[in-house]
Structure formats: C-alpha cells, structure tokens
Design a protein around this nucleic acid. Structure first.
Lengths: 219, 219
DNA sequence: GTCTATAACCGGATAGAC
DNA sequence: GTCTATCCGGTTATAGAC
C-alpha cells in the first residue's frame, strides 16, 4: 500500500502553519454547500448556486471538488463528525441523569447551532443513506451498541427504570433533531417567528425534564 | 369561459357509479409519485420514473397532472389529510392518558403503514414548506392551538404534570415520525433488518410508557 | 490558481397521429 | 383517452486563455 519511506516524502506537510488557499476555499465552498443542500436537496442543488453563495466562480468549485457528489459526501461526513463529538458528553460520567441529560442538552445545542447540517443528514437518511451507508454500519453502529450496553448496566444496577435502550435513544434523536429539521413548521406554529433564545432554552429544559422523568430520573 | 348550458352537456357525469378511468389512473400515479418523491425528493424525481412505476407512459402522466409541481402538491395534501385523521383520536375522550396515549399509538400506526407519505412531508418541511405553507398556517395552526388549550385545561385541573404543551406535542411528532423518516438508520442499527411487527409494537409501548410517565401519567 | 466559453447531456412538457 | 417523437431549457463538467 505504501512505500517504506512514505512518511519522509512529504516532510514539509507537517510544518505548514497557516491555512492554505485550498483549505480556505474548501471551507468556504463546503459551508455554502451545506446550506444549499439543506434547502433544496442533493438533486435540487446546482453547483452554480453553491459557487455563487460561496463567492467563487463555478469552475473554481469544480477545481476543488471534482464532482457535485464528492462535495456532498465531504459535507455529509463533516456533519457526522460533529454529531459524534456532541455525543461524547454521554460518556463523561457514570451517573445516568447527568449523562443522559448532558447528551440531550448537547444534541439540542447542535440542533440550534447547525440546523443546516442536521437537515442534510436527515435528507440523506430519508433517501436511504446511499452515501453514508458505510459510516452507519461502522462508526454509528459501534457507538450505538456501546451506549445500549451502558444503559443496560444502569438499568440492572437499579439506577433508572427498565426501558428499552433503543427506544430511548431514538426518542432523544427524534425529539432533538425535530427542532432543527422541522424548524420551519415550528416557526409557523410560533406565530411565524423562529424560537428565540429563551424559548429554545425552555424547550431544552422541558425535553430533559419529560424524558428524564419518563425513565425514572425525576429532578 | 362556459356556455350557458354547460351543465347539460355532461348530464351523464352525475350518474357515474364506479371509479372512472380518470380516478383509477390518478390514484395509480399518485401512489407511484408518493414513493418516488419520498426516495429522491422533488427535484430528484423525474416524471419518467413516476410514470414507469405507475405503469403508464410519461405523456399520459402529463395528461392527468399538467406539471410535476401540481402532482407533488396533490400528493402532499393527501398526506396531510390522513395525518389529521390520525390526530382525531386525541379528541375522543377527556381523560388525558387515554387521549395522549391513543394519539401516540395512532401516529405510530401511521408511521408504520405509510412511511413514504411521512417522508414526503418531512422533505417538504425540510425545504421550508413552500408548497404547504398555507396549509400550515390554516389547518395545522388551528388544530395545534386547540390541542394546546386542551392540554392546559388538563394541567390546570391537576390531571397531569405542568409541562409545556408545545414541547410535548413536538416530542410526540419527532419521536413517532422518526420511525418512518429514519427507518433506514433504524434498520441498519437493527442488524440490517427492518423492525418486525413485534419490535414495532414494543417500540410503540415504550414510547407511550416513557412519554406518559414523563408527564405524570404513570400506568 | 482563476475564470470565460462551451461541449455534452438530460428532463419536463407538448404536438399530433391513433 | 393513449402514446411516439421531439423541442427546448437548464445543468454538469471541461477546455483553454490568462
């Protein structure tokens, strides 16, 4: 796969201190792509629209990302990475109330701060996840099984009610992501105004309270 | 626009007892459209693919539905109607546990039986709901406000915990629809098998149990 | 590394015979 | 009411000058 001295071939890479033009432009294009993909889907997005929003010529986009599909793949994978990072709050304690509550809050925070990413993810799953299929089978599945084990241990130790760990995790995902994915519907039902910070904080508290109380972890 | 005796011209229409060719073909095309739209989105769907799945020539589809957008609108509105019908279980009692539990079960049943419809709806909201905007503002908003009032009454009567009605409804929507919209992800995490009837029934029970218990309506 | 011009292709919609 | 053949507009991707 690699030559014996592959590492030596690119010794200069290690010392590159600031962002290259390439890195800057790729970030710019990916941010624009995340927004456009979220708004009109994969097929609905045109490379022209993404390039315009990013402020670069269309041919320039194709210089950095050979095809629209590859750009989409890069965006989706980047969303996945941040998703997992938010999930780590789950592991930092052995107290289920702190762990689950912290996880819910982290997911709500993510829904608030990166709604476009959540929507790209949702659309990808809705389509049957053709692009991130491998990721689902590997990274996500592993994480999921690990969490299920942990929840079962807490249940067996009597620290929380005996609920189906799977149903609990799906409820957390469905509820938290709903605030990003269905934001338009929520805004219409909120008198045509997006939830403000106070309303979102209250929603977060309520979600925590209902779920924690629902699994026997009353405040 | 019409001649004075336009009605007399088609006196036979009134007496047509069984489904006309038109009605039959429209049903066929709409069912195919629901599936294709759910799988590849509005822009990704081609009238050719819809026609092929429906078993009619493409030009025939355009004979019944002048444009792809109109076909999409018809499909989405039809989904909405069934959505509301499922919601009526909410109103048939004054006992919150029966009402909310029944509503959750009806929503889960809908997610199970008509996943494509749920996904078309989800995609439409994800895109910002350009087509069903009016429906959201009128029908859904009215229903939503009515339910909020009812929940508040139950809370004031001490029949359930004082939770934010909005957060509760969003949790029910997000959780139940997750089983239709994220079915692919769920199936991957379930060892590449869709939930079978028993698993789905158990999930329904768990969702009911956690939510009802979370708002002070323990079994 | 940037950008204009263009090639190659595809999908929605229709014309018009049956 | 059905269907084949076709037009037209729009999109991806690239060629090639700067």
């Amino acid at each position: 796969m690699t030559s014996p001295n592959a590492a030596a071939q690119h010794a200069t890479v290690r010392s590159a201190p600031k962002l290259t033009i390439r890195q800057t432009n790729e970030k710019l294009i990916m941010a624009a792509a995340e927004e456009v993909f979220a708004q009109v889907g994969f097929k609905g997005a045109t490379t022209g629209a993404i390039a315009r929003l990013a402020g670069v010529p269309k041919a320039n986009l194709h210089y950095y990302f050979s095809t629209k599909a590859e750009l989409y793949r890069r965006v989706t994978e980047d969303v996945c990475e941040h998703w997992l990072a938010a999930a780590r709050a789950f592991d930092e304690t052995n107290d289920p109330k702190t762990a689950i509550g912290g996880y819910i809050r982290a997911k709500m925070e993510q829904a608030r701060r990166r709604p476009f990413g959540s929507r790209v993810w949702a659309m990808e799953i809705l389509r049957g996840a053709p692009v991130i299929d491998g990721y689902l089978h590997n990274t996500l599945k592993t994480w999921f099984e690990g969490r299920k084990v942990k929840l079962k241990e807490w249940i067996e130790a009597g620290k929380m009610d005996p609920v189906d760990p799977q149903a609990l995790l799906f409820m957390i995902w469905g509820t938290t992501q709903h605030y990003a994915d269905f934001a338009r519907q929520i805004s219409v039902l909120n008198n045509d105004q997006s939830l403000d910070d106070a309303q979102f904080a209250q929603a977060t508290d309520e979600v925590c309270r209902i779920i924690l109380s629902g699994i026997g972890l009353k405040s």
